[in-house]
Amino acid sequence: MKIAIDARMIEHSGIGSVLRGLLPPLLELGHEQGFQFVLLGDREKLQRYLPSLAPEDVAQWRAPVFSLHEQCFPPRLPDVTLWHFFHYNVPTFLRRPFVVTIHDLIPLVARNFANSATHRLAVRYLMQRQVRDAQAVIVPSQFTRDELIQRFPNAKGKVHVIPHAVAPAFTTVSEERVEQVLKRLGIQRPYLLCVSIHKPHKNLSFLLRAFSQWSREQQNGANLVIAGLRPRDLGDLRRLTVQHNVVERVRLIAEFLAESDLAALYQAAEVLVVPSLYEGFGLPVLEAQSVGTPVLCSQAGSLPEVAGNGALYFDPHSEEALIDQLKKIRKDRALRARVESLGRANVRRFSWQVSARNLVEVYVNLLQSKRVAT
């Protein structure tokens, strides 16, 4: 069986991290089962992350995600038995069996996601159609599975929970390497870290309000670093730092960071703060835990499921709750050590190798059930 995998988003932050982590073991384990794979995307970009790819393993496809060209003119690959899309962007005119990965239901639950009622209806239609027509739906958490089935009850028998994991780069690095990264980025310790884009459900305005309030109470408090931003996020966040009088205390990073640089940034941080109002998984939690950085985490969405007992939780609507946990983790060394230890242990529950094996099992079961014709 030949499987086509849409890998166009391999350089994106969230979905790109998933593709970069999952594809190497997936291709290896799939080949052991006799599967052939063809990756859809830009050949040069794909070979940058998967250097062993042969030319025939890539089908050049540069159509922008959600573009008219993508939706109406998918690649013609007559020898492909099954397609796998890692976003709810399955082409409308694809008439072949497919698997879709849905990372979260933010487009359906976040009021501020859509630009208009028409946009909201279009997103709901796309997701509803793809859940209905897919041979299998992959989600990263039990929370997302429950949310999906609540909205689309007919999907119950074909939803599979396959968690994300962390890349090998997220491990303890040398102090020399840490200093190099901090110097290049212009960051001084101590600092709190948040790794996020700026969208309403990421709750960064709340974080800046809480940080402003906490900073006024501290004589020599830490600064705040927000990394992982997009260039278009900077304008609004800069206005918020002015509004809350923390311009000199907040460093906004909107440049691409290699995973090894990001690992150093996590490692040097006093804590990682995850203030989200909703998450379908929450990779930064595991990335921070992997290098031994304590996590202060919202209790919303999938985050308690992912962070386990390796984090301190707070109500993402209460600045006082976040400040209280921040004071505790900075003051109580025993508590900090316990959270660090439990965090490292928690990460071991997640593995790209295991996730790839579970996904191959989904492919095998589809083939054996004859829901996919070879």
Rank of each mutant, 00 (worst) to 15 (best):
V274L: 14
Y191G: 10
K45A: 13
G30I: 01
D315G: 08
L303K: 03
Q299L: 08
P231F: 13
F86N: 14
L94M: 05
G228Q: 04
P153F: 05
A63N: 09
A288I: 11
Q325P: 00
G34F: 06
E11W: 00
L94E: 04
E270I: 14
G21I: 05
P200T: 07
V109F: 11
H84F: 09
L82A: 02
A356K: 02
V80I: 12
T144K: 04
Q47Y: 02
A321R: 05
L252N: 11
R239F: 09
L326F: 03
T293W: 09
Y191F: 15
L322S: 04
S351T: 13
P55D: 12
A258W: 07
F86K: 00
V123H: 14
P168K: 05
A117V: 14
L366R: 09
L229H: 10
G186F: 11
K183G: 13
D332I: 13
A210K: 09
L77P: 06
N89K: 01
Q368D: 06
R338H: 10
R348Q: 15
V271D: 06
A167M: 09
E11M: 08
P168T: 02
I15Y: 00
S52M: 03
Q325L: 00
E175D: 15
L77N: 06
P24Q: 07
P64N: 11
A300N: 01
R95N: 14
S174A: 05
E44L: 09
H198P: 02
G41I: 10
L27R: 03
S290H: 09
L185N: 03
D261A: 03
A165E: 05
S13W: 01
R251Y: 08
L367Q: 13
S341G: 11
P294C: 10
S13L: 12
F143A: 03
R62Y: 05
D42I: 00
D133K: 14
A345L: 14
S116V: 10
P163N: 06
V242C: 05
P163K: 08
H31M: 00
Y49L: 07
A165R: 02
R230W: 11
D79Y: 01
R348P: 01
L193P: 09
S141I: 04
T172A: 13
D236L: 14
A167G: 01
L193T: 13
P97Y: 08
D332Y: 11
S116C: 03
L26K: 02
H164Q: 13
D133Y: 10
L265I: 00
R239S: 14
I3K: 01
N245P: 00
E28L: 07
F256I: 06
G282W: 12
F37T: 07
L359A: 01
P316F: 04
A356Y: 00
D104Q: 03
Y363F: 13
L234R: 12
Q33I: 01
G343W: 07
